[in-house]
């Protein structure tokens, strides 16, 4: 009951209010001054910058999601058995949890700044990492990996370790090799957890904004401006209430769908 009250107070009611105001014209001081119908959505979709922010978000998701999945899966798979030294690897993989992503973003910003950057010294290159659309996006994706890596790693190793040993031992007796055991026996058994991490990463990718704000500020030339960063600019920098309510309504619905899928997956597991 208290949980429902809290949810009602802090998410459902504000969302409904936002949803309603996305069909109204709201003044900068927050007063409703007229009915706009679908106009707010219409102008939003006519805005080239918004359309390109959708493109940028999709591009980010497209690079981030497979990379994140493969990396966390590999890390978890390689350390799934407890051996003498796995704790070292575990500690390294979980460390990102202890730091805020913003701190990483600041460090990245210094590492990749300008042509005389630290990374160029190390790699003997002379790339302007954060000043070319392609490489700026790449740096952002790499930074994004820190977002979910630790938590995904914990979930996946826990899933691996909760597999019933007898199944694995049976496979061993049948002469299954390491690779075969991993992909044919263990992976299917953690499939639900794996798909949960994938959808969580998907949700995070679609909502990404803080690293963008710190690392690239949407640049160069708005090429890394994601939907949520665009939203931040419009809502907080420009005070554009029309965009604010329209975008947040759409994003809440999108992430609600993704969270719904996660919930269904979890139920299937239980």
């Amino acid at each position: 009951m208290p949980a429902i009250a809290l949810a009602l107070c802090f998410s459902v009611i504000p969302f409904l209010k936002t949803f309603v105001s996305s069909f109204l014209t709201i003044s900068q001081s927050g007063k409703a001054i007229g009915f706009a119908g679908l106009d707010n959505y219409k102008t939003l979709f006519e805005d080239k910058a918004f359309i390109s922010s959708i493109g940028n978000t999709l591009r980010f998701t497209l690079y981030f999601l497979p990379l994140n999945t493969v990396m966390t899966f590999l890390a978890a798979a390689l350390t799934r058995r407890r051996r003498k030294c796995t704790w070292i690897m575990e500690a390294i993989f979980i460390t990102p949890l202890a730091f805020s992503l913003s701190a990483f973003a600041l460090v990245f910003k210094e590492i990749f700044r300008g042509e005389v950057s630290i990374i160029n010294r190390i790699l003997h290159t002379s790339l302007l990492w954060l000043d070319r659309p392609g490489s700026a996006m790449a740096v952002l994706v790499i930074l994004g990996l820190f977002l979910d890596f630790a938590i995904d790693y914990i979930l996946l190793t826990a899933a691996f370790r909760s597999i019933d040993r007898s199944v694995i031992e049976a496979a061993e007796i049948d002469g299954a090799g390491e690779v075969r055991k991993l992909f044919a026996i263990e992976t299917p058994m953690i499939a639900t957890m794996l798909s949960i991490t994938v959808f969580m990463a998907l949700k995070d990718a679609i909502l990404i904004s803080a690293p963008v704000m710190i690392l690239t500020e949407g640049g160069p030339f708005r090429s890394t401006e994601t939907i949520m960063y665009f939203y931040y600019l419009e809502a907080f920098k420009s005070g554009n209430r029309a965009y604010e309510s329209a975008i947040s309504s759409m994003m809440v619905i999108t992430s609600a769908i993704i969270m719904g899928i996660i919930a269904v997956l979890r139920r299937k597991d239980a």
Binding site: L128, T216, P220
Partner: peptide, 9 residues
């Protein structure tokens, strides 16, 4: 045509 790190350059 760069938009960041200009004074460093």
């Amino acid at each position: 045509n760069i938009t960041s790190g200009i004074s460093t350059e």
